[in-house]
Design a protein around this nucleic acid. Structure first.
Lengths: 128, 128
DNA sequence: GCGTAAATGAAAACGGTTGTCAAAATCGGC
DNA sequence: GCCGATTTTGACAACCGTTTTCATTTACGC
């Protein structure tokens, strides 16, 4: 369909990690592409909807996108002091959530898990 | 010091889950408290900085806050259609969260878990 | 009571995101 | 190729949660 959307997808493919919409937009403009910010957002949204792109929110509320979504479900371990975040997998939690839901007659079960703690660096700083 | 800050903290203490700043503000105003939105934000930020409150971002970019030492700890299984909520205990999850945190050198580990699903009544209604 | 410093809050600024709407590109039939 | 209908596009404004500004109020020590 639109080669704009493919162009956006291509930028993400060429990128290593997560990129923000504004970032993608800036790069495309820098490359000389005639594209509007609105279209970048729309393309990203479409890609997310069709499962071709992962999206998550940074701590300061910006959405960041990444291509090649192996729908790899994970949770976050967040330091409550410095905000450092570690992605963690939790097969035990997945199974537990599913079991708890089923046990109560619920279907189409999803879940969110956030683990908070004080990371080693911060607990050292705090102690000192 | 400021009883405004304590008031904000108190609202969070009386709350079960995460609340948004605007939500806290609305409740305080509804209770007749003379407080500004700015002060609520400032109080929340201070509480977060001092480690008395957890904060995270929702999917739509809003910051939500929760008082740290939750008294009786349990999780919620929520029907995404009718909102019916079941309190569930999850020793497996508690252990998992603790283990995951420790594994990454984190201490003072807390966690939040929300399980969503469609309850039996609603999935029946939906099917029909 | 008086002075200083901290706290407060109304309003404006900010920034990322989303909506609006007219223009441009594309499609389908001929 | 031509023409109308549909889709895509993008400049701009609107939106909304959050942060900053700054003048006022309050708390505290004397």
């Amino acid at each position: 369909m639109s080669n704009r959307r493919n162009a956006v997808h291509e930028i993400l493919r060429q990128s290593e990690g997560f990129r923000s919409a504004q970032d993608v937009y800036a790069e495309m403009r820098a490359e000389g592409a005639k594209i509007g910010l609105t279209t970048v957002y729309r393309a990203l949204q479409t890609l997310v909807d069709s499962g071709q792109v992962d999206v998550l929110r940074t701590d300061d509320g910006e959405s960041v996108y990444r291509a090649c979504a192996s729908v790899h479900h994970h949770h976050h371990l967040v330091c409550r002091r410095c905000g450092r975040t570690v992605e963690v997998a939790g097969p035990a939690v997945e199974r537990w959530a599913e079991a708890v839901g089923t046990e109560h007659g619920f279907t189409e079960i999803t879940h969110t898990v956030e683990v908070f703690g004080t990371c080693s660096a911060c607990s050292a700083a705090k102690a000192g």
